[in-house]
Amino acid sequence: MCGIAGLFLKSPALEGSLGALLAGMLDVLAGRGPDSTGFAIYGDEAAAPGMAAGDARVRLTLRGLAGADAPGLTRAVAAGLEGGDADLVLRDDHAVLLVPEAQEAAARALIARVAPSARVVASGRRIELYKGVGLPAEVATRFDLAAMRGTHAIGHTRMATESAVTVAAAHPFSTGPDQCLVHNGSLSNHNALRRTLRREGLAFETENDTEVAAGYLTWRMRQGMTLEAALAAALDDLDGFYTFVVATRTGFGVLRDPIACKPAVMAETGDYVAFASEYRALAGLPGIEAARLFEPDAARVYVWERAA
């Protein structure tokens, strides 16, 4: 039960303000979700100097690094990687580690050894994911969300329903490369579906229903489905009440269950597509007065894609 915000930029002019705009949206939604706040933000694809065309670095968002020694950790990871290419940026108790994509597995193994308290909460060329217990203004300040730039972002304020008030149970959930999802509502068949997905090889860290929805989409996309097709399939396989906002490396999707009780309002201009649980969260966006405001239909898949 929650507040959701999402912002997908069409115009590069706003990329520098993405974090600040999202922070403003989340702050308004504090009442809908006073327990925890989280957000995922999609930045530029990062290539290191000297990388071949088409190669990229992967960003691993790590959590559980309060008080960590960033330079020491960077050196330790770099020393263990072929080519020694690693950068680490610490933000409060999170960090983003950039390594060559081909060495992601090696980097994960190293992290498990040199920083056993750290958990990899997201990975991909563009995604960074931060979440913490507390009101959105506090959490956004802790990670300096307002200073972050990027192309699209989703965020969430959580009122915990049936799982614990912990960072692990905060949204967004990322279960695949550059994928993440936020949810408002309550699924009614997530336990059985989680068991099915576990048999299919997906790993789950919480008892949270939303993580199952995220894992479901990852599973479908792993099967080769597009985001759009995966969302359409979700309509058949997920039971209960939901408004989802999902993001991928280049895409942004919205889905509401057929009953569509949980609120959703969207605004589209030449510069952006924005989603929020309540209009109040959109009221501060630039050019909102002239935006096309609409509510996404029940059981209809909405996807926006940008050039990779």
């Binding site: 039960m1 408002n184 009440f241």
Partner: peptide, 14 residues
């Protein structure tokens, strides 16, 4: 079985 104009605790607050 549900209220006509709110569903869930976040809307109940309103």
């Amino acid at each position: 079985c549900r209220h006509p104009d709110w569903t869930g605790p976040d809307d109940l607050e309103i």
